[in-house]
Design a protein around this nucleic acid. Structure first.
Lengths: 102, 102
DNA sequence: TACATTTGGACAATATTTGTCTAAAACAAT
DNA sequence: ATTGTTTTAGACAAATATTGTCCAAATGTA
């Protein structure tokens, strides 16, 4: 299971590009991209989309990674996490059912 | 499955108290408490703890509700939610294993 | 050593969340 | 209906958190 940062870094290495170049192409500060790769900063959704496009990575995978890391981060030091996730899923399903029914 | 707001409101009604009184007791603006009950605002953790104590509710249940609602909110308009939650759980377990091993 | 790339850290800029206040809405009781 | 009470909505300031930017230090490499 790769982190979002690892995924981005691998993608860049695949393309054999240096940060400065990528930064110029996707118009994001190179220092920021470095931090993304080291999981020190979280890209915004827009940045994710641009990076996915640029690296030709499946956007959906990055997004799944992005959200799951966000959630993992929130629950990292919390107890009852599996219970929390279970309840969260129920609530989401409930919301979504509401949406469809209306 | 009750929302956090519903739980709080029920607890207050059990005790037959008006907002103004609760507000004074737990030292939180009554308007805020009203919003908590209507799920328009999310209490801080500290507020949760104080309310749980005051209403004599199991703190852990409120916390589970709090986190799960937060997550549900984040994923409400997102796709692949069950995938996201699954990956999130894996990551959490991974983090926690790290913690123990160190 | 000299050069290129990556990284860390400080700080300003933005965005998000929170608390507070006030008045309007809703509800009762008479 | 009017009065009195409770709840709620909305606007706004205050406090927090997140983000973008810059530059210098660290790292790597020939």
């Amino acid at each position: 299971m790769k982190t979002l940062g690892e995924t981005l870094k691998c993608a860049r290495e695949e393309k054999a590009m240096i940060l400065r170049k990528v930064a110029a192409e996707v118009d994001i500060d190179q220092s920021l991209i470095s931090k993304f790769e080291k999981n020190e900063r979280k890209p915004t959704m827009e940045q994710i989309v641009r990076l996915a496009k640029f690296y030709e990575l499946p956007e959906n995978e990055l997004i799944i990674n992005w959200y799951s890391e966000k959630i993992a981060d929130e629950l990292k030091y919390t107890e009852s996490t599996s219970e929390i996730l279970k309840v969260a899923e129920e609530k989401i399903n409930y919301y979504k059912a509401q949406e469809n029914g209306k």
